[in-house]
Amino acid sequence: MTTRWLSAEEQRAWRSYISATSLLADAIDRRLQAEAGMPHLYYSILSRLSEAPDRRLRMTDLAEALKITRSRLTYAVARLEKDGTVGREGCPTDRRGHMAVLTDEGMALLERVAPAHVETVRTAVFDHLTPEQVGQLEEICGTITRAIQSGDPGTPGEDLPWRRRSCSS
C-alpha cells in the first residue's frame, strides 16, 4: 500500500486543527476546574443528561453521544454519583442496561457553571468567526463525523469508542 502523504496545504490545516483543538480543550478544562472542580467530560455528562427526557439516558446512548468508551463513562458516572450529581438506575426496557440520571443537585451545579462554560467557548471560538465561518465549521465537522461514523472502508468507524467492549461491559 502506498502512503498518501499530506500536501503542504493539508499539513498546515491539520497542524492548525490540532493546535486549536488542544488549546480549546485546555482552556475549557481549566475554566471548569476553576469554576466547579470538574473536567470537561463531567460537564458534558451533566449537560447531555439535562437535555434528555426526564434527565435520563441509557449509559450506552450517553457513551455514544459523548464519543467515549463505555468503561470511561462508567468511571466518570461513578465519580459523579459520589458527588450526588448523577444517579444510576436500571433500564425499564432492558434488564442488563442502566440509565444515568441527572439529580437536582447535578442540575443546580450545571446551571451555576454553564454561563462560564459558554463564555469560554464564545470567547475562544465564536467571537473570532464570521457567521459564514460558523456555518463552515459546522459543515466541516459534520462531514468528518459522518465519514468516521459511517464505518466505510478506509475509515476508523468500525472501532468507535462506544462500541468497544471492556471487562466491565
Rank of each mutant, 00 (worst) to 15 (best):
T2D: 14
R4P: 01
L6M: 15
S7W: 10
S7I: 01
S7Q: 08
S7T: 15
E9M: 07
E9R: 13
Q11H: 09
R12D: 11
R12N: 05
W14L: 14
Y17R: 06
S19P: 04
S19A: 09
T21I: 12
T21A: 12
T21M: 11
S22D: 15
L23G: 14
L24S: 11
L24K: 09
D26M: 04
A27D: 14
I28G: 06
R30K: 13
R31P: 02
A34G: 08
G37W: 08
M38E: 15
P39Q: 01
Y42Q: 10
Y42G: 08
Y42K: 10
Y42C: 05
Y43Q: 03
I45G: 02
L46F: 08
S47K: 04
S47Y: 06
R48G: 13
S50V: 06
A52I: 04
D54S: 09
R55W: 07
R56F: 01
T60D: 12
A63S: 10
E64V: 08
L66D: 14
K67W: 07
I68K: 13
I68P: 09
S71D: 12
S71G: 12
T74S: 14
A78H: 07
E81T: 12
E81F: 00
D83A: 10
G84L: 02
V86G: 07
R88W: 01
E89T: 15
D94E: 08
R95K: 13
R96S: 08
R96L: 03
G97S: 06
H98A: 12
A100I: 04
A100C: 09
V101A: 04
T103P: 06
D104R: 07
D104L: 04
D104A: 11
G106W: 01
G106F: 02
A108V: 06
L109R: 04
E111D: 13
P115N: 06
E119G: 00
T120G: 03
T120F: 00
T120D: 05
R122M: 06
T123P: 02
A124V: 01
A124M: 05
A124G: 02
P131Q: 05
G135H: 01
G135W: 00
Q136I: 01
L137Y: 09
E138L: 03
E139Q: 09
I140C: 03
I140R: 13
C141F: 14
A147V: 11
Q149H: 14
G151R: 06
D152T: 14
G154E: 14
G154K: 09
P156Y: 04
G157N: 10
D159L: 03
R165W: 02
S166N: 11
C167T: 10
C167Y: 07
